[in-house]
Design a protein around this nucleic acid. Structure first.
Length: 211
DNA sequence: CTCCAGGGGGCCA
DNA sequence: TGGCCCCATGGA
């Protein structure tokens, strides 16, 4: 597990997440990001900021229909609008420091599941918790760390956390690196010949090409 | 132009 | 758990 991390870091370099500088942007970004390319998340946040929506009180006052239009570049925008509204209406959460209790609070918000909750904690609350997404599962499965690709979220999270130093920047970078690797090489039709992990991959055997 | 994948989450059986 | 729905975007 640590070897994957060091290999990815060496080949792909530091990813430097989270791209959005403000706390508002980080939180909104974490809520919009699932199943959406980051570029489209940025478009959505830009739409909001151009409309002067750059803080939670403003978001709370914003008409839902208008909010939906602003974040339309992100898929499932109606669901995500509900999540944003719910977060804006629970502004007291912003003052709480990261914890597993706060995680439960996030999970009680509409349309916020484990990945989204953990993204909020890891990137907007600086709380060291590993985010697991479809790429994470697919990559670890192909590398032989998981018995199957469809597997319980918590199990994968525990596995990773048990084998990495419990360190904020390690978790932040590792998830970002796995996403980057996934985007580049680990689609359902994989592009393994160029994958930096190719020589370690047990499922797919093609030659490693160094960039 | 059409087809379709698919970085999540909720709900229901 | 497994199936279905939500539903923009971009590449084939």
């Amino acid at each position: 597990m640590l070897k994957i991390y060091s290999t990815l870091f060496e080949v792909l370099g530091p990813q430097g997440w989270w791209p959005h500088p403000t706390r508002f942007g980080k939180i909104v970004g974490a809520l919009l990001a699932p199943a959406v390319k980051w570029g489209n998340v940025v478009r959505a946040i830009d739409n909001l900021e151009k409309a002067g929506i750059d803080n939670f009180p403003a978001l709370r006052e914003l008409d839902v229909k208008l909010l939906e239009e602003y974040i339309r570049p992100t898929i499932y925008y109606r669901k995500k609008a509900q999540a944003l509204k719910a977060m804006a209406n629970k502004e007291e959460l912003l003052e709480i420091k990261g914890s597993l209790l706060l995680r439960e609070e996030f999970l009680s918000l509409p349309n916020v599941g484990r990945e989204t909750a953990d993204s909020l904690l890891l990137y907007a609350w600086d709380y060291p918790i590993m985010v697991v997404d479809a790429y994470t599962k697919r990559i670890l499965y192909r590398l032989g760390y998981l018995p199957q690709e469809k597997i319980d979220y918590d199990l994968v999270q525990q596995l990773i956390e048990s084998k990495l130093p419990k360190d904020l920047s390690t978790y932040q970078e590792y998830h970002a690196l796995l996403v980057r690797l996934g985007e580049l090489y680990c689609k359902k039709s994989p592009l393994c010949e160029d994958c930096p992990l190719n020589k370690d991959c047990q499922k797919i055997h093609l030659k490693l090409v160094e960039g």
